[in-house]
């Protein structure tokens, strides 16, 4: 599904040049659940951004579903993104002015899913995430765990092939964190590919492969114990 060769990302200011990604070669197959770990500033999030096509690489190639996407225009990247990718953020990033229902529905507005189908899909997810009773609440009226469940529901409502999760449990207590990880595992077991950035070894082990990064480079790649 994903194949990068010599992928690099360099940030330049007037005084400093920072290499965030340095010749990263990476391959992720469909159905994998890959966790990316490493110290702060090692380039994990940059990798996620580039692979999620919300940032463009400075060098190298990036093939997504067999197509080179590293050099696509913003418009084309946006198109690939809305049909294939789902995002889960550490800070949930729900829109405060929209209700739970409307937040989950939002991605389908951009992919022009008909109204009746939108309603059905949102309700199915609300049911599955056990937040149906919160459908008309605004994000600030929910607990952190509930907010993240809404965020996950929003990420998967368009049935993406790949979910990119950036520390999805970072703002949650352990019980809610567990809940979210179980949902992601469930999605993976149903065939969705997942790429997750995390600081937590515990969470990383929900996946089947762990990539460790340092100074913008992939230093190790290991299968999680149960897959050895």
């Amino acid at each position: 599904m994903i194949k990068t060769t010599n992928l690099s990302k360099v940030y330049r200011t007037e005084e400093v040049e920072t290499t965030a990604l340095n010749d990263v070669d990476l391959e992720i197959k469909e159905g994998e659940f890959v966790s990316v770990m490493g110290p702060s500033g090692c380039g994990k999030s940059t990798l996620l951004n580039v692979l999620g096509m919300i940032d463009s690489p400075s060098g190298g190639t990036y093939h997504f579903l067999g197509e080179e996407v590293g050099s696509l225009s913003e418009r084309k990247r946006s198109n690939v993104r809305k049909h294939n990718l789902g995002f889960v953020f550490q800070s949930f990033n729900l829109i405060d002015e929209l209700t739970v229902f409307e937040n989950i529905e939002l991605p389908m507005l951009y992919t022009k899913v008909p109204n009746s189908e939108r309603k059905a899909r949102v309700e199915e997810l609300l049911e599955g995430m056990n937040i149906m009773h919160r459908r008309n609440h605004f994000p600030q009226q929910l607990s952190g765990g509930q907010q993240q469940r809404v965020a996950v529901a929003r990420a998967i409502v368009n049935r993406p092939k790949l979910i990119l999760a950036d520390e999805p449990t970072g703002n949650l207590d352990s019980a809610n964190g567990d809940e979210v990880m179980k949902i992601l595992s469930q999605l993976n077991s149903e065939g969705t590919t997942i790429l997750m950035v995390t600081h937590s070894q515990y969470c990383a082990e929900f996946g089947n492969r762990i990539i460790r990064m340092l100074d913008g480079q992939v230093v190790t790649e290991n299968l999680v114990k149960q897959y050895l």
Binding site: G52, H83, F87, N93, I95, Y110
Partner: peptide, 16 residues
């Protein structure tokens, strides 16, 4: 900004 960012990540174009 957050709202715009989310919308764009979800696939909103600049025109939208």
């Amino acid at each position: 900004a957050k709202e715009i960012g989310v919308r764009k990540v979800m696939g909103a174009s600049r025109w939208q």
